[in-house]
Design a binder for these strands. Sequence first.
DNA 1: TATGAATGAGAGTTCATTCAT
DNA 2: AATGAATGAACTCTCATTCAT
Lengths: 223, 223, 223, 223
Amino acid sequence: MTAAEQPRSGAKGPRRAVAARDRTRQPTEVRRRLIIDAAVPLIAERGYTSVGVRDVAAAAGVSVGTVTYHFDSVQEILSEAMVLHIERYYTALSEAAEHATSGAEALRLLIDALFTDDTDRHWRMWFEYWHAGEQGTDAAFTRGQADRYTAWHRQIHALAERGQADGEFSCDDLDGFTARFAALADGLALQRLRQAPPLTTQEARHHLNQFIQRELVPRPPAR
Amino acid sequence: MTAAEQPRSGAKGPRRAVAARDRTRQPTEVRRRLIIDAAVPLIAERGYTSVGVRDVAAAAGVSVGTVTYHFDSVQEILSEAMVLHIERYYTALSEAAEHATSGAEALRLLIDALFTDDTDRHWRMWFEYWHAGEQGTDAAFTRGQADRYTAWHRQIHALAERGQADGEFSCDDLDGFTARFAALADGLALQRLRQAPPLTTQEARHHLNQFIQRELVPRPPAR
Amino acid sequence: MTAAEQPRSGAKGPRRAVAARDRTRQPTEVRRRLIIDAAVPLIAERGYTSVGVRDVAAAAGVSVGTVTYHFDSVQEILSEAMVLHIERYYTALSEAAEHATSGAEALRLLIDALFTDDTDRHWRMWFEYWHAGEQGTDAAFTRGQADRYTAWHRQIHALAERGQADGEFSCDDLDGFTARFAALADGLALQRLRQAPPLTTQEARHHLNQFIQRELVPRPPAR
Amino acid sequence: MTAAEQPRSGAKGPRRAVAARDRTRQPTEVRRRLIIDAAVPLIAERGYTSVGVRDVAAAAGVSVGTVTYHFDSVQEILSEAMVLHIERYYTALSEAAEHATSGAEALRLLIDALFTDDTDRHWRMWFEYWHAGEQGTDAAFTRGQADRYTAWHRQIHALAERGQADGEFSCDDLDGFTARFAALADGLALQRLRQAPPLTTQEARHHLNQFIQRELVPRPPAR
DNA sequence: TATGAATGAGAGTTCATTCAT
DNA sequence: AATGAATGAACTCTCATTCAT
């Protein structure tokens, strides 16, 4: 899934691709997608500021010319790669929550999906995405970020609302809960990625569960 | 407010240090410090990946040669600048908490100091620092980050412990509280810096206060 | 403190310049001039669109980094090189005319200086300069061109006026004469550079002399 | 007026031919001509060094592949486009002169046709053509240029000769007159295209008419 | 005949680092 | 200690050309 390893052997010479290059032709949309897919792990591993067209080209198994033929700039590639990955992640989270039979269970499933052993790269990417918005990027990118943030908040909000509507628990400040939940998740991810020793996924989930227990007061099932 | 820009209107050729005449000699440590101080605002504003030796030199009013004379690499300058700034910030937070007469008040003061109108640059720097650890940086830097994180946690822990010892409130999981508090603070800062509209400082403080109210159960003063 | 030293030792082929490069240091203004001087013949021979930084660097005996250190862009180098050369040429023409004792003689000397065996490169450069103004270049460049054109016309005009004032010849339309003289000179240069067989310098001068004979009616010396 | 621009608003990825659907097949000669015709205005507007295969393809409404299928190189396209345009122009000039009933009138008509409000693009193209011969171009191109120059001179020469044969005026040096006339026309065109303020078409014609008045001494109609 | 994806050499530019002064 | 000219590797991007379809 990650790979994209390029032998890139000792090859000092003309730096040809390994064997006689495939030179397989792909419709633009397909090739674009292949390139973006190849860029995702690079960004997750090295950080978007350290990824260049040559890296992407090598990872995608095409020439630099091919990369620049399909994209207007590196920025475009990196942005699309980050966005693609982020959206994939959120889609996965949504799906996890959809299987629930109640709001409370949905939140629990969401928490379980938020921190597993292979969500680290997602979080890494998420913070790369976050950091990329800091400067230099255009308005569209920034707006996209804000939109994604909003959508994520809305999803949390909806689940909490559903639980409340179903009478599972009560909460006097749904918006506040949402903001705190989202913030806590982000902050725990930071701890997992930076602290030594890192927060375990289990601990991260535990903290979130503790949190909702305190914020969402369980209501006794209607008699 | 910070700027340090070079007017450089119609000028051609290489940029030069602003004041070339006052070639004041400074003891190494003094000069190092002056340079680092000049680098701090640059990083906060542009991000550390966008700050070069020339920028630092210009901001410090010295030549590039002077900068590289005192430092082994750009990395060194940027690392030290970030560390310096972070430590300053935490020192300020500590001092804010020290004026308290009780653990509970100390936590409140800490929260007040965490989000004010001029803590944005500190948070920005904090996330730059955080992001810088992602890759490329050496072990020492990474260790320093972890240490700083630990120290910050210890401080929160100590305040909570103090409150508990004084019987102000009770908490059955001080370590857990600490982790969640730190995470929540980081996550709220992320929201403040990226969301549209941004979280206000007031809201951020409110969320933290709500959080400790729920986590630290107040105990009636001993009769 | 930070280290992060890159060994960088094993460097396979550092690809140093041929011999131990001089690495002679020059004040910016001197180096700029050396580079521009090196660029002039390149432009005259290959045309300004075919001259790149690497060519200029090689011709000037410095590295590309040195070239870009002293100039903001290739455009800047090429523009300055063309301007420098053009101005040198016109200065030479002015000096040639200055030695004359009368307006009529001045015009003859001017014509002699306009077409000699080593004015071809000047004309070539002139047309490069002319062509460079066609598009893409900024307003300052275009204005400079117009100014230079005007100055050249003024010079011709002044000489003709002097001859008329001295009673050497009469001309009822000095401005018209000027425009035609300048145009004829340019047009003859075009023929010299492109026609097969090329117009000889002698022929070019002859045409100009014929022209002034027809335009400037000699007046019998006052009796 | 010419444009041929691609709207290409927010589009990402490679540019495509405008109308991809009407993949009409054309005999080689027809397609070549269509492509060359499309290239002409591009050269006149941007200069031949700024015109690429993609531009030509877009302007011709075909793919890059089609362009390179019909031509061996960009140079070939641009050369042919310039030649085509130049020849068209000279043909128009010839026709203008043909309607005359005498050599003198023919010259006047020629002058009128040389500078009108829509000859600017022709002159621009002419100088592009001229400049293109400077370097890089092959022998055939250079020879073609010389031939065209010669033909143009021959035409002027013929008209002057006719006038002289008809006894309209006398000229003791027809070759010299021809060279000067051609040179003057070129030089005036340069002034029109570069001077600020530009020479008006009226002035340009006036200068040429003045010139022939001085060079071709009118002879009283035979009694 | 026509297409357009693929290529790679080469362009201009940036910039951390070196080092003679 | 301080300077700033010099360096060259590495970057992104352009573009004529190739070629499978």
